[in-house]
Structure formats: structure tokens, C-alpha cells
Design a protein around this nucleic acid. Structure first.
Lengths: 317, 317
DNA sequence: ATTGATTATGTAACTGGTTACGCAATATAA
DNA sequence: TTATATTGCGTAACCAGTTACATAATCAAT
């Protein structure tokens, strides 16, 4: 079974499961060995209620990290074996108080030797090993808690996909896409305004011939996103990032980021001191992106757009 | 859930299972992410049949380390999804030849990106971690293959139990146990002979007053094993290890080993050059013990016992 | 006092594996 | 040749967990 050597870490789940199975299989024989009438799966439950006070089902579940139905089943099995007693809480009729029976308490004494023997056996293994499995598991749990494997893979996918995205200068052939991509999101979340039609129908006149720029993101040669750097008639904010639109089918490719970066780079190259933009707070991903790029909220400026309820600036120098 | 911190490595099985679950749960979402209509559990099967030639169910099972019913189920699910085709082997009507369908082959192409993204994601985790989980698993698999956890725990139990065993000199109060313990095994496997009665009924006369010794193993103050060092009338083998008997209820405590060592130590202390013994090859554990202690088979000597079919010696100097 | 939300728990059905078993095809040996 | 053993594989039942759902008790807010 050199399967794992061939497939590598992709199959880490399968491999973990096999090791788990091997260990838990032995576990049940170990209980036999010590003549303790207990199943390995009971152990976590048994352990927490052997720690003193009686506990409810959900408390136990939370403590050992199982679901409550799992604990519920285990408890009823242990009750059947007489290891544990149930008692309704008088103060709260929902709660089922679980505690060790006399027989259960007897086992806590006898089981101690078993614990120490298992600890020594595992200690022997870790001494033989150069890699500490226990600590490695701990570490993985911690790392995966910070960011799940799924999200890490998503990131990788995004990185790979974004490499296939190409940012190019606007050309007349993209005029339809430029309008369509913007119209798509505007009419989805808001509605088209007078200023939109002006800017979208006449990009040359309103943007390019006025000292502005438009960038187009291509994926498989198809335009999937656009963004403009607009020259404004405003002494404080001479340049504006605007008309950012990314096709929803192109999500997860960092298209917005790439477009915004192209605009920012251009603004810096032509000597803009700062960059201005308008947006709407309901567009969470966009606001997040702007924030990540360093844009900060600024006070209310005059705007021709009804939907604009937030304004941001990025200092470039 | 600081449960694991409290219980320590005893719960390594539970902890492994949880990590496994967390990872495999993400796995299914990862397939979704790449729009690949495949379940994570299919992956090992999918992988081996994507390697080229068609394979039988059992071949696949062996290769990936699953049971054959598991593979059988997975195959039928994959057939239902059209990823795989079955074909009876003409030469051998039992064999069910499995190979990828056209649709399955298409997936092999699309899945490559997924593999590399997962590899990078896991690579990122291992880079963050100081302990290498992958290598730790590998190592544990290897170590457990050499000796299972169960056997390691058994060893620990034996060590602990053997510490409770005390080897003492024979005293008249043990005469009944001395006889009973020997009679027990002799009459279980063979039958009592003339020489047995002599030696067992009159230990003082036949052994102790003749320059020999008897040791008794006590467990909870009860005699559970005996062994004698007998002085012989033989120029070549002056001393004999004999009358070794251990109660079957005292197994797993190394009683035999402790008794034999007491006898060997004594023989060495009184200046014996070598030690002789007789036994029967059907008594496997005894023969193993003698062998482990350094006894070697020697050629046939005269013996009063019918059951003796092997003779061994241990050089002491 | 009533109504709606939350909490504690049990039951049912599912999941991804296992072992046990049985049947048919093939191999082996008398 | 014929009886017997072995092999390949599917089905059934089990196992240790899960999620989904139902129900009853309690809490919270009007």
C-alpha cells in the first residue's frame, strides 16, 4: 500500500482515519485486558463525570467536543450497564443530571493502572519517534482554527485564477462590455441614474478625452471586469476611482483587486496626490477591498449619484 | 474543551478522530469549490484507476488499504454517476474489471488544479507548523506495525504486575502449594509419574537436604509459582533447574522469568559451571522462556521422566 | 398573563467505514 | 473426473459518530 507515498498529502484525511482506526481498535482490547467492562467510546464521557460533580448531557458534550446526541446515546448505554445514574434536575425539568454509580466509581479505581500503562506505552512510542504526533495534532487543530483548510484552498485557487486575469487598457471593442458590466450590478442593487448613462454611453468623451483612463480585466480573452480612473473638476480630489464592475461569474479571481491596483498605480504614475471614490455601504465586499487597499472614509462631498452614501480617499504620496 | 489537556495521551484516539473529521468535512466542500461531482471518499479509488490499466475490486482495495466491500460500494456509486465502467473479465468470470469512463477521464484533467491547490494549502500549514504531522503519522504507522499499541500496553501491564511478585526461599508452609502447583500443570498436559511423587512429596529429602534450593513466587502473599535448583549426581550437569510451575491465573506477570532468574543467580552464586533442564517441546511458552534466558538444546541424556523430550543447558561462567 | 425565543434532550436517519456471510467461479489434488 | 479449497465480490448488518427534527421546559419581554 504505497498509495500514500504516491498521492502525497492530498489524502491526509484518509491516512488519518486509518491511523485512528488502528488505534481505537486496539483500545477496546486494552479494556478487555484490564477486565473493565467499558467501551473505548465511553471513555471521554466516563472521564468527565468521574471528575466530581454531576453534569448535564450538554455540559458533557461541550466538554468533550461531541454532539449532544452522541453523549445521550453513550449515557443510555452506560446506564444499561449500571455505570452511571440519571436524575432529573428539580429546579429545571429539562436537565438530566448524570453521575457515576457505585459500580462506576469502583471502575475509576481499577482504571488508574490502565491509564498509567497506556501513558507509558505511548510514552515509549513518542520516545522512539522523532516527530511528536501529539504536538503535531495540537498544532494542526490550532492552525485550522485560525483558518480552515477549505479557506486555505480557496486562497490558493484565487491566487492561481488571478494569474490568468490580464489587465489591459480600454479599447473601443470593449465599449459594450464596459457598459454591460456596470449596468449589471447597478441595476441589480440600485437603479441606473442620469449620471450613469452619461458616463457609460460616452467613455471617450467623459473619461478618456478628459485626462482619465479605463482598465479592462480579461479572462480567457473575455472582458470580465472594468474600472476607471476619472479626472475630476475638484481642487481637493483631482482623481477618482470609479465605474468598478466585476462580473459575478468571475468571482474568486481577485479581479477587483487587480483592477483597483492598476488604477492606483496609474494615479500614482501621473502624479496624483490622492484618490477619491464613492460607494454604498451595502456593497460589503467592495468596501472591504477599498479598505484593504488603504482607502479611508472621508466627510460628505457633493455627488451626482443618489446611491453614494460613503466616500473614501487614499493618499498616494 | 480543554478535555485533552487534562486526560493526556490516553485519549489520542478521540483526538485523532476529531482532527480527521474536521479535515474530511472540508474536503467535500473543496470538491464543490472546483465543481467536481465527486465525493471525497471516492478519491482513493478514483486515483488508482486513473493511473492507467483497469483493475479488479480486490486489487483496488488492497492498494488503498480498504476492505473490498468498501470499494465495492464506492464503485457502484461511481458507476451510478457515470464516472466508471464495470466489465466482467472473460478469462475469469469472478473478476469485475473497473476502469474510468470518458466522463471520469475528463475529471482527471480538471482535478489536477485542485490537487495542486490542496498541496499548496497543506504545504502552507506545514510551513507554519513546527511539528510535521505527515511524517509523524508515517512514523506512528511504522512503529505500530512493529509492535501494536495493545502489545505495548500488555508489556507495561506485565512490568507493573511483575513488580508485585516477590521471590522468596522455600519454607515448610509452602509445601502444599509446591506440590499443588506442579501437579496442576503436569496432570493437565501429561500425567503424574513415579519421579514426580518422590520429588513433590518430599522436597526436603530430595532437594533441600541434598544441596538444592526451592524458590516460591508470592503475589499478594499467596504462592503462585515455584521452581527448584536440584543437585544431581551427574559429573557433567551438576545442577538442574526443575519443578518450575506457575499458576495459570498468574499469567502475564513474568513469574516464570523471575523464578528462573532466581535459580540461575543461585546456581551462579554457588559456583555451578552450567545448568541443565528437561522439558517437553509442547510447552511452548516454557521453551521460549528457557531459550530467552540462554538455554541451548543438548543431546539426549538419561532421564527418569517419560514426558521429557527436550534437554537444555545454560553455561554460567 | 401571554407569547415568542431559547435551551436541554431524545429520536430518527444518514455516513463512511467495518466484519460476517454466502454464492459462484476457478484452482488443486486425489 | 470429482471432491475440496480458494478466490472474487456482492449483500447485510453493525459501529461510532454526525445532522435534522421534535418536544418539553424555561426565560424574556411585552
Amino acid at each position: 500500500m504505497n498509495f500514500f507515498d504516491k498521492v502525497g498529502t492530498v489524502a491526509i484525511g484518509s491516512r488519518l482515519r486509518m491511523l485512528t482506526e488502528k488505534i481505537t481498535e486496539d483500545a477496546s482490547h486494552i479494556y478487555e485486558l484490564y477486565n473493565i467492562d467499558m467501551q473505548p467510546k465511553w471513555f471521554p464521557v466516563f472521564y468527565v463525570i468521574s471528575q466530581g460533580e454531576e453534569k448535564t448531557v450538554t455540559e458533557i458534550a461541550k466538554e468533550i467536543g461531541h454532539s449532544h446526541p452522541s453523549v445521550s446515546k453513550i449515557i443510555s448505554e452506560m446506564v444499561a450497564k449500571g455505570l452511571v445514574t440519571e436524575k432529573k434536575d428539580k429546579a429545571d425539568g429539562r436537565r438530566n443530571m448524570i453521575s457515576l454509580s457505585k459500580k462506576g466509581k469502583e471502575i475509576t479505581v481499577r482504571i488508574k493502572d490502565q491509564y498509567t500503562d497506556i501513558e507509558s506505552a505511548i510514552g515509549g512510542i513518542t520516545k522512539q519517534a522523532t516527530h511528536d504526533l501529539w504536538k503535531a495534532i495540537e498544532e494542526w487543530e490550532f492552525i485550522l482554527e485560525q483558518q480552515s483548510l477549505l479557506n486555505r484552498v480557496k486562497d490558493q485557487l484565487k491566487i492561481r485564477e488571478s494569474k490568468k486575469v490580464q489587465i489591459v487598457d480600454y479599447q473601443p471593442q470593449y465599449s459594450a462590455a464596459y457598459k454591460a458590466l456596470n449596468e449589471e450590478w447597478i441595476s441589480k442593487y440600485f437603479k441606473m441614474e442620469e449620471a450613469d448613462y452619461k458616463a457609460l454611453d460616452n467613455p471617450e468623451e467623459y473619461i478618456l478625452n478628459n485626462g482619465g483612463y479605463i482598465y479592462v480585466a480579461l479572462y480567457n480573452k473575455q472582458p470580465i471586469g472594468v474600472c476607471a480612473l476619472i479626472r475630476r473638476d475638484d481642487p481637493e480630489y483631482e482623481y477618482e476611482l470609479a465605474k468598478m464592475a466585476v462580473s459575478p461569474i468571475a468571482q474568486g479571481k481577485s479581479v477587483g483587486l487587480l483592477l483597483a491596483q492598476a488604477v492606483i498605480d496609474k494615479a500614482r504614475a501621473i502624479g496624483a496626490a490622492k484618490l477619491y471614490l464613492e460607494s454604498n455601504t451595502s456593497l460589503k465586499p467592495a468596501i472591504n477591498l477599498y479598505h484593504k487597499l488603504g482607502f479611508n472614509k472621508v466627510a460628505g462631498r457633493a455627488t451626482p449619484y443618489e446611491r453614494a452614501n460613503i466616500q473614501m480617499e487614499l493618499l498616494l504620496s
